[in-house]
Simulated scan of single mutants.
Amino acid sequence: MAREGYQAKLGELQEDVLYMSELVLERLRTGLSALEEKDDELAWEVIEGDGEINQLYLDLESDCIDLLSLQQPVAGDLRFIAASFKIITDLERIGDLATNLGEYTLDAEQDRYPDVDIQAIGDAVIEMVEDAMGAYDDEDADRTFEVAERDDEIDELCERASTVVVRDLIETEIEADSDDAEIEALMADVSRFLLTVRDLERVGDHAVNIAGRTLYMVESDDELIY
């Protein structure tokens, strides 16, 4: 393949990775809306759409392998392909976490913790992913550090939310005549909420991973890779 054609293929890969990120973020937003509105229809939309994301991941994985085998990539191209492969892996996992939100929606009986703004945490991690992908698109090293620096804020928000839930559980007085079903329902709601917070925190971690791979792609700097 001529060098010009190879560069065009690299450009197509980048566009496809960006498209995958848009699709994944759309599913994540839908999952958050389903959870907030207790909307089973939206929940199923996210769950049933996971197959599309998985197939896109496999297609892009194949594209990365083909680009590596077509000709001997120079160092910069090699880092780009490797970073793109790692990034689609993170995006696929974010898609799985969005699917979890859909499943939590179907399991939820009621909103026991209205004082915790799950949507705000979700919005914050979505912005992190958007900025990480923007850095990948623009090859912006400085922006990767900005994304990574926000991870501590997300961790703090998630820790506060989890503390509220645990404190509420400790302070909840279970009536002596409460049956096993009532106690199990309470524990299921607590578990679901804590899993929701954990999953959103993981989305933030994946955003940092994307930023780290982008930084390595642009400057061969592994500072943000862990």
Rank of each mutant, 00 (worst) to 15 (best):
I126A: 09
A185P: 03
G5T: 09
S84M: 01
V46A: 07
D222P: 12
A211V: 06
G212R: 06
D179R: 10
G134S: 06
T144Y: 02
G95V: 14
L23K: 15
I118F: 10
E61M: 12
R202T: 08
L200A: 04
S62P: 03
A124W: 06
I183E: 00
A176M: 06
A161S: 12
D66F: 15
I126H: 05
R192M: 03
S33Y: 06
Q7W: 07
T163M: 10
A120I: 02
Q14M: 09
A2C: 07
Y6G: 02
L97Q: 14
V147S: 09
E103H: 10
G102I: 07
K86A: 13
I126P: 03
E175R: 07
T30D: 11
I118W: 05
A82S: 12
E15N: 13
G95Y: 02
L35E: 09
S69V: 15
N100V: 03
L10R: 13
E92S: 08
N209C: 02
R150P: 05
D152L: 15
L42C: 09
S220E: 15
G134P: 07
D137Q: 12
D123R: 14
D96Q: 05
T144E: 09
I170W: 00
L224D: 04
E149I: 08
M128A: 05
I174S: 00
L23V: 15
M133R: 01
V24N: 03
V17C: 10
I81L: 04
L91R: 10
I94H: 00
I183T: 05
G31D: 00
E37R: 15
V129W: 00
M217A: 12
I47K: 01
V218H: 04
V197E: 00
V197A: 01
T214G: 12
M20G: 06
S220G: 15
E4I: 10
A124Y: 05
S178G: 11
E109T: 12
F85I: 01
M187F: 13
E153A: 04
I81E: 01
D177E: 12
R143P: 04
I47D: 08
A2S: 13
R160E: 13
A2Q: 14
S21L: 00
M20V: 11
A2Y: 11
G134D: 14
R202F: 09
